[in-house]
Design a protein around this nucleic acid. Structure first.
Lengths: 143, 143
DNA sequence: ATATCTGCAAATCGTTTGCATGGAA
DNA sequence: TTCCATGCAAACGATTTGCAGATAT
């Protein structure tokens, strides 16, 4: 997570201009664990920046992803989600309500070694996505 | 993997008609390890069924997925891929040439138990996707 | 005979692009 | 002043849908 000062510095160092929209979009992502989509980001900022377009959201998340300070998640839904937590962690999506949660601290060392041996690939990354029912939806389903 | 006789039986049992297109699409998937996209399937069958449309490909893979005899893969690319091997296995995509290979027999028991405990979700599934360089592309990159 | 399927074209939806205007450096 | 960014609208590509004619049962 970066402060707006740190983000401004990083942008300038990479020949990108600092704009209110860019700071606001990063701020949204840094302050939530909900893994918003472009649409969610757009809606959250619409009252504050009524003229802001989807193009700006998409261009900004593209830049932030290239700077390596956010990550783009493909959870098997229609739209991509974005996450300002760039640490290696897995995700789980609730088939009931659609929420996507983090799962931290899974030990994937053995898995990756095994995959590397069996596939003969030079591995560079790994995404792990679980599906299931969140505690709330599991409870509702029992009733 | 199903023979065309078995597939025909399964389709009829589920009130779906047996058509040459359906058998051909399943046959393509059952005879490859390349995880084709809808476009690849369409192209492979175009000489044999020149009038077949993308709509038929999409409708058919939808049915086969619902019958549970193929799976739809989201490997983080633009288009979905389809796989007639419905056993639990991971996939790895080469960042050099784009090929997608299977990785069988990864032990994910510990991972899933850990994820279940940490997330508190009732887990129903898990997708694991690796990225890296296939042996051929890794060799090319060294040169 | 009847319900389902095919194939065409149009629609949809998330995302990207071109370009004129506006704003940061 | 000089780029780069924004915002609009149009383009895009994968996928879905509506519907008339064709086909499996």
């Amino acid at each position: 997570m970066y402060t707006s000062t740190e983000l401004s510095k990083l942008l300038r160092e990479n020949a990108c201009k600092v704009t209110p929209q860019r700071l606001a979009i990063y701020s949204i992502l840094a302050s939530t664990k909900a893994h918003p989509t472009a649409e969610t980001i757009y809606k959250k900022l619409h009252h504050q920046y009524p003229t802001m377009s989807f193009a700006t959201v998409y261009k900004t998340v593209e830049i932030l992803t290239e700077l390596g300070i956010i990550q783009k998640l493909n959870t098997g839904e229609e739209a991509f989600r974005y996450d300002a937590d760039i640490s290696r962690h897995a995700h789980v999506r609730c088939l009931g309500c659609g929420r996507v949660d983090d799962i931290f601290d899974l030990d994937t060392t053995a898995l990756e070694e095994d995959a590397s041996t069996k596939s003969q690939y030079t591995l560079q990354g790994c995404q792990i996505y679980f599906q299931g029912l969140c505690p709330e939806c599991a409870k509702k389903n029992q009733q």
